[in-house]
Each structure stands twice: as C-alpha cells, then as structure tokens.
Amino acid sequence: MITVENVVKTFDNKKAVDGISFEVKAGENAVLLGTSGCGKTTTLRMINRLAETTSGNIYINGKNIKEISPEDLRRNIGYVLQHNGLFPHYTIAENIAIVPELLKWPKEKIVKRTSELLEQLHLPQIYLSMYPQELSGGQQQRVGLARALAADPPLLLMDEPFGALDAVTRASITNEFSQLEVLKNKTIVLVTHDIHEAFKMGDKILLMDKGKIVQAGTAADLLFKPANNFVTEFFESQRMQLELNAVSLKDIWPFLDNTIFQNNLNEVSPDATIWEAMNILSLKKREDSITTNVVADERKPAGFDSLFIALSAYKRHRYE
C-alpha cells in the first residue's frame, strides 16, 4: 500500500529524516515510535505532502505521490491530529462533512454518512448539532476520527491521536480504537511516543531515532530480538509489562500444558495478551486458573506459573 524509499527531509541543512525506507501493507497498522525530535511526525506528514520530501520517493498503491496534487492526495487519506483540529465554528455534523463536501458528495449521502459514523464511533446523534467546545476531550478525539473516516479512505494517518488526553481517558480510548470495527480494514500509519499505545495499536512497529529507523518489526520482535543497544534500552524501564503485553495466548498455545482439565473456569479470548490474562487472574479470589481455546473444542487451563513458563518457552523457541 505505502512504500517509502530512501526519504530524506532537511530543515535548514539539518536532517530531520535521514534516508528511511519502509513498507506498509494494505490493512496493516504501522506505528512510528520514538522520542520527540526523532523525525516520526515529519515522516508521517510527508505521506500526505504536508511536508515535501527533500529527496527519495513515496508511493501509495504504486503511484508516486508527487504525481498527485496535494489536495487530491489528502482528500483520499484520513488525517487525525493530536489536538483534534476540529473547526470551532462548525457543528459536529459540519466538521465530519468537511471532506465529503470537498469531494462534492450529494447532500443526502453526506447526512446519511455522518449519522452512520457517529453510531459506529459510539457517539449519540444529538452531538450532530453541537459545537466541538461543548464536548469532552475524548469525545472530540472521536469526532476527529469520524471526520478522518468520513469519505471512507483506505489509508489513515494518525499523529499522536491520543497525545492530548489525560492518562485514564487515553488508556480507555486507545483500547476502544484498537477494537473499532470501522478501523479493522484500514491501513493505518500512527505516530506516537507512547510504547504501550504502540504495542496496542501496531501490527508493525518502526522504532525511530535521529531521523533513522533503528528497527522495524512486531512488538515481540523488538523486545526479544533487539537490533542494538538503543532498542534494548528504549524498552528497559517497562520490559516486564511490555513482554507480557507483546505476546498473546494464541502465541504461547503450543507451550501451555493441557493435562489437567478443569471445568467452570473463566474463558479468555485467545487474542488476549498474557498481561490481560494475568489481569483477569489477579481479579479472581480462589481459582488460580483460566481457560482458553485456539482450536475448536480444545481448551487449555492456565495460571500465573504456567503462563510465565509458557512465555519463557515461547521466547526460547522463537528467538534462540
């Protein structure tokens, strides 16, 4: 879907982005992760030509974006900003309708689409006639997403979409977004400095430093097979939680013991991470086990011990 080829961006003779290349496949969620000033936002903005490349090329579906007018290019890419950027003088309905209006959709289609989006993003219809400042930060961010999705673009660019929210709202809305049905088939490039957010949202993480991609891969790849010391140190302070978050029950399925089978255990989705499974265990009082199934009709119970053992086995098996 997106191919970035050897892209360089200089500001006043300083290289903000220094020859990076990567690819994002259709339907994939790629996260540009890094500390401030590492060039991740610039990289994102070059994809919709809010910043122009100094050298190198970017292709979307095989077409060089330099050959598309910036306006046309942007109208077909959803864009979500940190400070939502909602128009304060437009109602929610009008805000969501901006791109469809630019694309000159018929009025009825726009009305239908706006109310449909509100529903998909779990926002009540009465918001349509309200103004952004009447909504809470989290709600505004959802409207910002609705606006980006309005013309149903296949590609979404998100620039620190949850960056302006408080920690609690941020966690819950990240969770919610990661599960939204409307985002399932989209190709997403997301910029964040938050490791947890990156792990939650990203199929593929591109860890950047000083304008270069240091390592690209899944969360587990970065954790368990770091390319260099920078990568190791980047995750150091939160390693345990990250590891537990990076691996799902599905991944450790082969390493779970299924000898003892107990009935009436809580069933957890195989897509849940070990961290989530442990959270459930933590909440329980007497039983120290949960169960999951990957193959139909086959279940395996798990407790704290068995989960840790399975994780170690998984790491050994996969990365050594």
């Binding site: 919709n48 077909n76 864009y79 950027g85 128009f87 304060p88 791109v99 630019l102």
Partner: peptide
C-alpha cells in the same frame, strides 16, 4: 489555531 489550519490543510482544502 495552528492545529485547525493544519487539519484543514491535511483534509485537502486549498
């Protein structure tokens, strides 16, 4: 607000 201008540009307004 710069964010609003940025959003407008990012959505493809001339």
């Amino acid at each position: 607000d710069a964010a609003v201008k940025d959003a407008a540009k990012g959505m493809g307004m001339s």
